[in-house]
Amino acid sequence: MEENNIILTIKSLSKYFGALKAVDEVSFEVKRGEILGLIGPNGAGKTTITNVVTGTYPKTSGSVIFEDTDISNLKPYQIARKGLTRTFQVVKPLIGMTVEENVLVGSLYGRDKRNTDMKNASKRAREIIKLVGLESKKDSLVSDITLPDLKKMEFARVLAMEPEVLFLDEVMAGLNPAEVEEASILVKRVRREKELTIVYIEHIMKAVMGISDRIVVLHHGRKIVEGTPQEVVNNSAVIEAYLGKRYAKEVNNEG
């Protein structure tokens, strides 16, 4: 892992919905190969940042530099082709297709400048299905599988796109503690094998702390703290502002 090698720079990025400043002048950098946790309570602007960075919403102002190019005016498919992609907070499976076909679409499209003919793409899709442990379900329709499997499918689908940077938007939401544990291990393993850079958006504190190299904390659309998990946890501003109560509660809930 190369240190201090910046792959993604978010520079004074803002997104307003009318008078609501969902994201307000947020700046941070993502280093190649790291897992960056992006946390904050509901409405902090985490998903909005994801939506702006990946092109789903147009920005209000600011810029997003991905490998030396400003991608903040590109469409989602163009950004995906450059190698920056995301999962959705609410899973968006391709209804009417099987698990394998879903992953195949990711493999066929996804990042540019790689071999995407049918044969190669199918092979890649099958390998990735195996990697995430969905082999037994590969011929099931996505409408017939459980939520944890859907999340795995979506993860497999973005992996098949072979991105460099991956935004994981609350992939743990709706999973029980055992499944969260399993998913964390999977994410860490895949990150190592695929040399991925991950921006990890999360609610469940325990998962974020265990998995992230660094953490950015958002509150009301603004960045309030940035640092290692230890620094963030011990930051009095963070604890007093909101994390303390919440963290304590989460820890209690999860025993």
């Binding site: 990946t54 789903t56 498919y77 992609t85 391709l94």
Partner: peptide, 14 residues
């Protein structure tokens, strides 16, 4: 047809 938003985010020029 399955999900246009997801399709777009997967690199498909819809």
């Amino acid at each position: 047809k399955a999900n246009e938003e997801a399709a777009n985010s997967m690199g498909i020029n819809t």
